[in-house]
């Protein structure tokens, strides 16, 4: 840090750092620590997926050991999707499950000494944009254009679109608030742990583990749940009773 704002905190550091720079059509582009952390997370998850696939491929009627764990995870995730999306649930098992596992593991990767990839706005914004795209694809699939127009003018009748700009802003606010919520929660945990380790020095031994339980495990799991829950609720709202137009 150039300007010593935190006077004693010379090694307070929770920022993203560049690892190496390359030129992309003349633009200088950085590979950052976020990329490295996300690569580690993806490698671990891929390894788990391959192991799970093999366990299921030679699985027995009476599951035991690792197969039990895998079946439990899949059942819980599917149950979560079922309870919010109703009839439309089977089409979203894969997406919600993938996003849930990825965000959860990213959030708790702070325990492994990584900087959580979700504490980078460049990771959470694309996730929220995928949700945004899903919402609108399903909206156009299941609703008549006239209903969509009426929703956009909603408190007033459809021939008086005075509220249209405000409703458009609230549409755009969905991905922004989704991504900022996840990002700021994880970033606040990361910043807090960096401050504790950086400012307290040797005094911060052993007891910050309790804070890790709160900031990494509890907060991370809650925010994962909230992200997936909101995604499912928004999509289920657009699908309605599931009759195509």
């Amino acid at each position: 840090m150039e300007h010593g704002i935190l006077l004693s905190g010379t090694d307070v550091d929770f920022m993203i750092h560049g690892v190496f720079q390359y030129s992309f059509f003349g633009h200088p582009v950085w590979i950052t620590t976020s990329h490295v952390c996300i690569l580690i997370v993806i490698l671990i998850l891929t390894g788990f997926a391959i192991a799970a696939n093999r366990a299921i491929a030679k699985g027995s009627e009476v599951p035991g050991g690792f197969q039990n764990v895998v079946e439990l995870i899949v059942e819980k995730l599917d149950g979560m999707v079922d309870s919010t999306m109703g009839k439309a649930a089977p089409r979203f098992y894969n997406y919600i499950g993938t996003v849930f596992i990825f965000i959860l593991f990213s959030n708790i990767s702070g325990l492994l000494g990584l900087r959580p990839p979700t504490a980078d706005y460049g990771v959470t914004l694309p996730l929220a944009l995928v949700t945004f795209a899903l919402i609108h694809v399903n909206k156009w699939k299941y609703q008549k254009p006239m209903t969509i127009w009426e929703d956009l003018c909603s408190p007033l009748p459809k021939w008086l679109p005075i509220w249209l700009p405000i409703n458009l802003i609230s549409t755009v606010a969905v991905p922004v608030s989704l991504s900022l919520r996840l990002f700021a929660n994880v970033l606040s945990g990361t910043a807090m742990m960096a401050l504790i380790y950086g400012l307290l020095g040797w005094f911060a031994t052993a007891w910050p583990a309790a804070l890790h339980v709160y900031f990494d495990l509890f907060s991370g799991a809650i925010q994962t749940y909230v992200f997936c829950m909101l995604t499912m609720t928004y999509i289920a709202n657009e699908i309605g009773d599931g009759t195509r137009r």
Binding site: S177, L180, R181, A184, N185, S188, Q223, Y225
Partner: peptide, 10 residues
Amino acid sequence: QAVAETTGLY
């Protein structure tokens, strides 16, 4: 609560 927390996080 997690949704309400958002404004504080801003």
